[in-house]
Design a protein around this nucleic acid. Structure first.
Length: 423
RNA sequence: CGGGGCGUAGCGCAGAUGGUAGCGCGUCUGGUUUGGGACCAGAAGGUCGCAGGUUCGAGCCCUGUCGCCCCGACCA
């Protein structure tokens, strides 16, 4: 993609009214645009990142055997009354139609997925199964804050599982927990699995996934060696204690909650009378689990955990594009055409291999502005073609995470980039 | 919803004691430039969040209202 063809440009000055890194850089770099408090438009670069994050999550859910569906955001009042949540969940957006019917905007989808299961689930032979969606959620938060970390409209993957027995549910719950850790790691995030209040000793366990970053609002006790963590609000342990799992040392760190999983037991199957017939012909309650990842929050968390004072530093796996190509102008007409022609060929070769490139093809822009934009946008690899590099039959190769660049010969560059983008 | 801060050009800001709005960046035109946010000349762009009120006169004073940010309570 040519920078000159993208309508969503970077801003030289960051927005004045934000303090969190994700709000500042995502807006300044033209990844998102704030429509109102807690509501954002995802622009081309931001959407590219969001899609990659969601694809990673999708792959991990598929690997669990879950099937993707899409449930409605506009939801009937009666289902929310059936679970007694219409009047008790205060973050629920409620709206009236022109004929004065009332609806909820989906804050969560137990009220949709459980009646859905009721239509198909009859026998133990239908179990277990899991289904999920990646969709927009609406929650009437009293205070939206911190850029995309807490919006009133946001993206979320929510999965629901259905089981005949507690053993089966617990086993799937554990598999999902492990899949979550893999998904976060693939997104370049270091997470701790934190026992939510009640913890493993209660009948219905719940776990939170905390992305470790100084910008986090939750204080957790985390093991330095394994993924164990405990929310400091419910902690029975303290800093310096031994990790109950691996014996490592526990220390206090800050985290952003990027996921939450619940053993729901029969809470929703009770509300909707969701049963199955077992091997003996007896009617029994279905057991359920639900599992959520805030994917738009995940994007913000990745920025919080991966930036410096000049801009974002995207992990390769979720970068909007792998290569940020810069061409510098020359006063010599022939050299200039050579630079642009070389860049054009390189882009074609890379894109033929499925490697995404942003080419900053602007000609009347000072070099410093292009460097500053590349740092701000944060693609993993910056490739520069100039009169200087042309004389060496090379491009200048500089990774976002390193301070120094080096020259790479034209004949080698496509292959080297091909190697670089793997992993 | 409680507390605090702020709404003036696309972005960032300035506008003593009320007198009819300005700066930087960006944008447009022409020219000169091109390795860390260039330079010269010219130009466009604002019912000062909105609604009332006080006044001869309001960006500025008063009342109300909407919005945004931060802290708190609550949450993926």
């Amino acid at each position: 993609m040519k920078y000159s063809s993208c309508f969503a440009k970077t801003f030289k000055t960051p927005p004045s009214d934000s303090d969190s890194a994700n709000a500042k850089f995502l807006v300044q770099a033209g990844f998102v645009d704030q429509t109102m408090a807690g509501v954002y438009t995802w622009l081309p670069f931001g959407l590219a990142v969001l899609r990659k994050v969601e694809q990673i999550v999708r792959e991990e859910m598929n690997a669990l055997g879950a099937l993707e569906i899409m449930m409605p955001s506009l939801q009937p009042k009666e289902f929310w009354e059936a679970t007694n949540r219409w009047d008790t969940v205060d973050i629920l957006f409620k709206l009236h139609s022109q004929t004065d019917k009332e609806y909820a905007l989906g804050a969560s989808h137990e009220e949709i997925v459980t009646p859905l299961a009721l239509k198909f689930l009859k026998s133990y032979k239908d179990l277990p199964f899991a289904t999920y969606q990646i969709n927009t959620k609406f929650r009437d938060e009293l205070r939206a804050k911190s850029g995309v970390l807490r919006g009133r409209e946001f993206r979320m993957k929510d999965m629901y599982s259905f089981h005949t027995s507690q053993e089966d549910l617990s086993a799937f719950y554990q598999k999902t927990l492990e899949a979550y850790v893999r998904a976060y790691n693939r997104c370049g995030l270091n997470v701790k699995v934190v026992e939510a209040s009640g913890g493993i000793f209660t009948k219905n366990p719940s776990h939170e996934f905390q992305a470790l970053t100084p910008a986090g609002e939750d204080v957790i006790l985390a093991c330095g060696k394994c993924e164990f963590g405990q929310n400091s609000e419910v902690a029975t342990l303290k800093e310096g204690d031994a990790c109950p799992k691996c014996g490592g040392v526990l220390s206090t760190v800050k985290g952003i909650e990027v996921g939450n999983i619940f053993d729901l037991g029969t809470k929703y199957s009770d509300a909707f009378d969701l049963n199955f017939v077992d091997e003996n012909g007896d009617r029994k309650r279905v057991l359920m689990g639900c599992y959520g990842i805030g994917t738009s929050r995940l994007v913000g968390s990745i920025v919080e955990a991966n930036h410096d004072d000049r801009g974002m530093i995207w992990p390769k796996s979720v970068a909007p594009f792998q290569v940020h190509l810069i061409t510098l102008n020359s006063k010599d007409e022939t050299v200039r055409e050579n630079i642009m022609g070389t860049a054009d060929d390189l882009v074609r070769d890379l894109e033929a291999q499925g490697i995404e490139v942003l080419w900053d093809d602007r000609e009347d822009v000072a070099p410093g502005a292009k460097f500053a934009d590349a740092d701000l946008i944060g693609a993993p690899l910056r490739i520069l073609i100039s009169e200087k590099s042309l004389k060496e039959e090379s491009v200048e190769w500089k990774e976002r995470i390193s301070a120094e660049g080096r020259l790479v010969k034209f004949v080698d560059v496509v292959e080297e980039i091909g190697e670089f983008v793997k992993v």
